[in-house]
Design a protein around this nucleic acid. Structure first.
Lengths: 277, 277
DNA sequence: CTAATAGTGTCTATTAGACAGTATGTT
DNA sequence: AACATACTGTCTAATAGACACTATTAG
């Protein structure tokens, strides 16, 4: 039996969401940064590595597995982005981190507890900003290698103690929604977070070309060599100096500061030139 | 008081999702197609128009407003993509429509009933496939004009009787997640569907360059002139013939069929050359 | 001086843009 | 024949890739 409503107010007064099946949502975050590893040679520049933050689960489900930082959405009080920010604050004690919605994952069995849909975010941060650390279960993993062969992408993660090897099949068919699928159901991160890592790294790679996203991972002042190294580690290939400088020349401003004391010719420090300056 | 669980099975047996606040989700679909409008001149080719499917709401909330086709997710039985497919089947009686996840919208007040998070999809279809039609409240709107000025994007929709004018502010700051925001809260489509339309059209525009997405809107056989017209209507600009043919030459296969009887030189029909052929 | 990176000049290859021309079926 | 589109050749401009060279500091 349907009731006839004369107005939206009247309709809303009668509406009770609990009459319908509902579900839970989470926001999960792929926090990416670039770190420097000192090389044992006073002349050489430090080596750049890309790293992501993982958290060891201390509860069921997936107890003792590594996963991306994330948390349940409070549906009455926050947006998914606000939820992501809250989680990042909790894990890293940082606010004002660059956040971008990545993809919404919703396989029926992705969480064994109940139906949980996860909206994922990429977050980028300059590692120098991270002083105070974090949840004791959280830990940075360096991305050692991204290899692509026969549409299988392999990524190796290490925190110095543990190694994690992701292996994901790339979906080539343009007709499909997802860019990645599981090679096997033996995912090594909790939930479907293997997929999120790969999709996020790919998104970052693509966005380097047509956005200024990279400057969210840079300190205020940087040399062009450092910036180039960040590009190289994200794209996973060497770039030629003159070509690189042509491409980024309009995105940066030369300053009068120099980086000295490196055992070789000093280099000029640059700043990001914001679009509307 | 926390209970200690010895195994994941034991933990899951005790787990009750209803102990937590939950929410509802919908899948909303921006169904895009390109239609031909006959021109009153036997020599001239028909004019191409891009059109989208809108549905007039016959219930509260937003009663009598136009909105995108969509429906509530059944959290126990389907994924969001399956939900979108179900909705498309219901509205257009078509299966096997190209679907791609666009963005998840979740402003707290986007639905006056309760918290509803919407994951949106782009769907592309060749209009010739649409024979049997649809829900009586559904209707194609031609996109008349996309104008961009001072980061305000204006889109005019018409179904021959009604005109709808969307006007959305583009968010330029790279630091923000959303590409669009409301110029005013006076949105003309129900919910936040103004945003979805703009974001979807922009996604389609971008994807033309680096994917084969356009062939989902094409019939099996088409002339290069027709394909070029589709590009032009999506990109909203004229293209030069030789440049266009250079760009798409590897994506299509020449056939031995011709399109004749058009009042001018016949043209060769082409087919899409699938990636793995 | 040497090792190592910083930074630039320039040539070449590739790609994109523009225009002008030829080709051909319908009325 | 005239119209409208189909299709191609070729010049030019812009961009990307490659290499070689000079510059400069700490040690």
């Amino acid at each position: 039996m349907e009731k006839f409503y004369k107005s939206e107010e009247e309709f809303l007064k009668d509406y009770n969401a609990k009459d319908f099946d509902q579900l839970s949502m989470t926001a999960d975050i792929l926090l990416i940064s670039v770190s420097s590893e000192e090389v044992n040679n006073y002349r050489k520049n430090s080596k750049k590595m890309m790293s992501i933050l993982l958290v060891k689960r201390d509860d069921y489900p997936f107890k003792d597995k590594w996963c991306l930082p994330g948390g349940f959405l409070d549906p009455n009080r926050e947006t998914l982005e606000e939820c992501a920010k809250r989680v990042l604050k909790r894990e890293t004690n940082l606010s004002n981190i660059y956040l971008e919605q990545l993809y919404t994952y919703d396989a029926l069995d992705r969480d064994p507890r109940t139906r949980v849909v996860s909206t994922t975010f990429i977050a980028l941060v300059d590692k120098n900003r991270l002083t105070e650390m974090i949840n004791p279960n959280a830990c940075w993993f360096d991305i050692m290698l991204i290899e692509e062969k026969d549409n299988i992408v392999d990524v190796s993660l290490t925190n110095g103690v543990e190694n994690i090897n992701l292996s994901i099949k790339k979906t080539l068919r343009e007709e499909t929604t997802d860019r990645y699928s599981f090679k096997t159901r033996k995912n090594v991160l909790a939930f479907d977070h293997d997929l999120v890592v790969l999709a996020g790294l790919e998104r970052l790679k693509n966005k380097l070309n047509y956005t200024d996203i990279v400057f969210n991972m840079m300190p205020e002042y940087f040399t062009l060599g450092e910036l180039q190294q960040v590009y190289e580690v994200i794209l996973n290939k060497k770039l030629l100096d003159p070509a690189f400088r042509r491409i980024i020349k309009d995105k940066v401003v030369k300053t009068y500061k120099m980086r000295t004391g490196e055992g070789h010719r000093p280099s000029v420090l640059f700043k990001y030139r914001k679009k509307n300056d």
